Simulated assay, not measured.
Amino acid sequence: MIKVMLVDDHAVLRDGLKNILGMAEDILVVGEAVNGKQALEIVEGADPDIILMDINIPDINGIEVTRMIKKDHPHVKVLVLTMYNHDEYFMSAIKEGADGYLLKDSPSEQVIEAIHDVFKGESVVHPSMTKKLFAIHQQKAESGSDNQLTEREKEVLLCLVEGLSNKEIGKRLYISDKTVKIHVSKIFKKLNVKSRSQVVIYAVQNQLVPLPPGS
């Protein structure tokens, strides 16, 4: 059974989420919080596997609460569920340890699927966010985290984070689909990830993509 805790100050939305999660036989809501302070108080007793975290909540915002929970309860997964699709919120949430980022317009099935994926150790990112990552700057951040990648692999990594398909990557870099697949496989192995969404999380957390000012 996957134990889920809800952090959102809107009662109607929490009730809606409980109804949605009730559709899954292996998901149980074990706690609810309406603000940041309450979330920090409840998390220890509720001992959830996953927290569905809104960003705009009273007292302490969801990004800061995520940071504090990840520090004191590193085993707890945090899946941000918000109406904000701004780059700075997304990158800040990921930088503070969020395991996924979904928008509230996501279909019910996608929310349930995301919970299952995060529970299995995967990372989930709303499709629109991967496409927006490089709207800020198309540049490489200076970081030693990706020294193990070749220059070509770094180029492919940037394309992956941008949300391009293998075919689109091949067209941009003038290489075949087969060659793209080989590079992607090597990137996954070197960065110890299993999915494209995990690549995005890794790239943001390790500053392989540029962070917006003030994030």
Rank of each mutant, 00 (worst) to 15 (best):
L40V: 14
V78P: 02
K70W: 11
G100F: 00
I94T: 13
E113S: 13
A98F: 02
D72W: 01
H86A: 10
P74D: 01
G31L: 03
L149C: 14
M53I: 04
K77M: 12
H116L: 01
L40H: 05
K132E: 02
S143P: 11
P107H: 12
D59V: 15
V30F: 14
V118A: 02
E155S: 09
I115K: 04
H116W: 05
V80M: 12
G144K: 10
I69C: 01
G163H: 00
I60A: 02
M68N: 05
A93S: 15
H73I: 03
Q139M: 10
K95C: 06
E122R: 10
S106C: 10
A141Q: 04
Q38I: 14
D117E: 12
D99M: 00
N35A: 06
S92Y: 03
G97L: 05
V124Q: 02
D47I: 11
K95V: 05
I136D: 08
T82W: 06
Y84M: 13
P74N: 00
Y89C: 01
L164R: 14
E44H: 12
I94R: 00
I115H: 07
P107K: 03
L102Q: 11
D99K: 00
Q139L: 14
D59W: 12
N85S: 10
T150N: 07
I57H: 01
V80A: 04
T66V: 08
Q38R: 11
K120M: 08
H126I: 07
I169S: 03
V111S: 08
Y89S: 04
E122M: 09
G97F: 05
T66Q: 09
P74T: 12
V125C: 00
V156E: 07
A39G: 04
V78D: 04
L157N: 08
G62T: 12
R152A: 15
Q139V: 15
A39W: 07
F90K: 00
P127L: 06
S165G: 00
S123W: 01
E88L: 00
I50Y: 06
H126E: 15
N35R: 10
I55P: 09
H137R: 08
M91L: 09
N85V: 01
V111E: 02
F119H: 15
H75P: 11
N85K: 03
E41T: 13
Q138L: 09
S165D: 09
S123T: 10
K37H: 04
A114V: 13
I169Q: 04
I94N: 08
M53C: 13
K140F: 12
